[in-house]
């Protein structure tokens, strides 16, 4: 009897412990958001919100805290990164899952996953040493000569640019996306592939109409995961994006100054300037909200696609 009581007691405790932990994780997000909001409140009370969010005037000593250029920089760099990373990742994952002979796959996959574990600062250094000269000496001259229109026109000849940051970010997040995509593509049942082939589909038709269709919800999820990572990435971006103050990027070759880089660069310095601290925490809050918003959108798409399937 005592043994049964103990077992039931353990059952209850483990049950409650799990609820507690689950709630804690859930509330962590709210606590972080709430904390940031509380600390950013002073600057929100002194300035109008649209000036804070859309103005590019960032002169803390003069009391101007326009985050517009930083927000635009974040979105621009992330957008470029995803534009490069998505085709790269989807095609690589497709190759690994569908076309690659399995011994090769066995070697390639861990290799790619290894890339995901490399420290961002290493990617930053690599970006400075390889991508910056590539952009400066080849890509930018080529594009400004042959495509002299948006989004290729720029006065920035340093090679430190949104495109550079985008490339580095794309290389950083691709391993993650590839590894997730490959996993979900590989999980499409053999029976389903067999159906398509048995009806006379070519391999590419089978991949396109069955595998890609089946994994589309997972694909969206994997891409958004990469997107969120790219948006929050700090170190590598800070090293190669140029980070010039107060400029809205108008071109791939313009510098960009994304929010994470701003926060990392300035937080803890010049804290005597009034409202500076609050403005930086507002930047953090904006980044937080952007990330959450993108995740929500992704979630929505995911639900839509899954509903269409089921």
């Amino acid at each position: 009897m005592a043994e049964l009581t103990l077992r039931l007691w353990k059952d209850q405790v483990s049950h409650r412990l799990m609820i507690l932990m689950g709630l804690m994780v859930l509330f962590l997000g709210f606590f972080i958001g709430g904390g940031l909001l509380a600390r950013a409140l002073p600057v929100l009370q002194h300035h109008h919100w649209d000036q804070l969010l859309f103005s590019s005037q960032w002169h803390p000593t003069q009391g101007q805290f326009g985050l517009g250029a930083f927000i635009a920089g974040t979105l621009w760099v992330t957008f470029v990164a995803i534009l490069i990373a998505v085709p790269l990742s989807v095609l690589t994952a497709m190759f690994l899952s569908e076309y690659c002979p399995s011994p090769v796959r066995l070697w390639l996959k861990p290799g790619i996953e290894l890339l995901a574990g490399i420290s961002p600062v290493v990617y930053g250094v690599w970006g400075m040493l390889v991508i910056v000269p590539l952009v400066r000496d080849y890509l930018m001259p080529f594009f400004s000569e042959h495509f002299p229109f948006f989004p290729f026109v720029s006065e920035n000849y340093t090679g430190f640019s949104a495109l550079t940051a985008g490339i580095v970010l794309a290389v950083m997040v691709s391993p993650l996306i590839i590894s997730l995509l490959e996993e979900i593509m590989h999980s499409v049942s053999f029976g389903m592939r067999e159906v398509a082939l048995a009806l006379g589909a070519t391999k590419w038709q089978m991949v396109k109409t069955v595998v890609l269709r089946k994994v589309s919800p997972g694909m969206v999820a994997a891409i958004i995961l990469g997107f969120s990572r790219a948006m929050g990435e700090t170190m590598a971006v800070l090293m190669v994006a140029g980070c010039a103050m107060g400029i809205f990027p108008h071109s791939l070759f313009d510098t960009a100054y994304p929010l994470p880089a701003l926060i990392a660069n300035t937080y803890g310095e010049m804290m005597s300037v009034p409202l500076y601290d609050a403005a930086i925490l507002l930047a953090a809050l904006v980044l937080f909200i952007l990330t959450v918003a993108f995740n929500m959108i992704a979630w929505g798409i995911l639900l839509y696609l899954e509903n269409r399937e089921a």
Partner: peptide, 19 residues
């Protein structure tokens, strides 16, 4: 593709395509 088209296959577990 033409060979397979000449033969309809019904598998053990019905497999509908995700559409």
């Amino acid at each position: 593709t033409h060979l397979r088209r000449r033969m309809g296959l019904l598998s053990q577990k019905p497999t509908v395509l995700p559409m």
